[in-house]
């Protein structure tokens, strides 16, 4: 198969931009991704479990391109319904960002089965559910982009996060296997592995732990959620057409070499 013409207007910005679905898009990295795609002119379905994404400071045209969708990724029926809703409003999903995730941190000796299951079910199985639902239309269209949100702890490990790290490492195996399955259909599947990012998820760790982590980062600071969104947007862009199965660390050098 030859490389596609680079001039193909696959992602022309503007009102008829791509249809992007981001899970867990009401805050943190997911919200930053949703906003990045909106700024690029895409139509964005932003799924949330708790409260919908804030829109107060968005320009009116971007509000029109944003579809907040309630969806608990642990519930297959809700995933299905969310995609039905998005397809009815915007058409088929061309870019999927599987970002929804939770933490239930504690040392393994104190980690009960529920804490393990909850994190795996949301972070890894949730990704499986949304990717599986998104994939059929992508395969039929012979085009699509999937970006999975992993974490450097999937490779580095993190005391107190056995469940979270296992789920995040699982994203890599999922992505790379799927990249092999659907590469022939023009669909790319990639992973973004953030390090320390200024989000609520990091804030709960406490200042001392955050400072300790920060001291391990060559760039000496945490990332903004927008810096992670930039990497996601790149992997979804035409410029990344030949990139699949890769793990793009956005970690200030924290895990370099892994």
């Amino acid at each position: 198969m030859s490389a596609p013409e680079h001039t193909a207007p696959a992602a022309a910005p503007g009102p008829s931009g791509r249809v992007v679905l981001v899970t867990g898009a009401n805050r943190g990295i997911g919200l930053a991704c949703a906003r990045r795609f909106l700024a690029l002119g895409d139509r964005v379905a932003a799924t949330y479990r708790g409260s919908p994404p804030p829109v107060d400071d968005l320009p009116a045209d971007q509000v029109d391109h944003l579809l907040p969708v309630h969806c608990d990724v642990t519930l297959p029926d809700q995933v299905d319904a969310a995609f039905d809703q998005v397809e009815a409003a915007f058409g088929r999903v061309e870019v999927l960002v599987a970002n929804a995730g939770i933490t239930r941190d504690t040392l393994l000796l104190r980690m009960d089965e529920q804490a393990w299951q909850d994190v795996l079910d949301t972070n890894l199985t949730g990704a499986y559910r949304v990717v599986r639902r998104a994939l059929g239309p992508m395969v039929r269209a012979r085009r699509g982009r999937v970006v999975l949100m992993s974490s450097v702890v999937g490779m580095l490990g993190s005391a107190g996060q056995v469940n979270y790290a296992a789920a995040k490492a699982g994203m890599i195996g999922l992505a790379r296997s799927l990249a092999r399955e659907v590469g022939s259909r023009g669909i790319t599947v990639n992973v973004v592995a953030p390090g320390i990012v200024e989000t609520d998820m990091i804030a709960v760790l406490g200042d001392a732990r955050v400072e300790q982590l920060r001291s391990m980062v060559p760039l000496g600071r945490a990332a903004s959620a927008g810096e992670v969104a930039g990497a996601v947007a790149f992997l979804a862009s035409d410029d990344a057409a030949y990139i699949t199965g890769t793990v793009l660390a956005v970690d200030g050098g924290l895990a370099m070499g892994l």
């Binding site: 059929g136 395969v139 039929r140 399955e181 659907v182 022939s184 259909r185």
Partner: peptide
């Protein structure tokens, strides 16, 4: 037809 084609056909 590869294996993915067959899955598509079955669906």
């Amino acid at each position: 037809a590869d294996s993915l084609d067959l899955v598509e056909l079955v669906m």
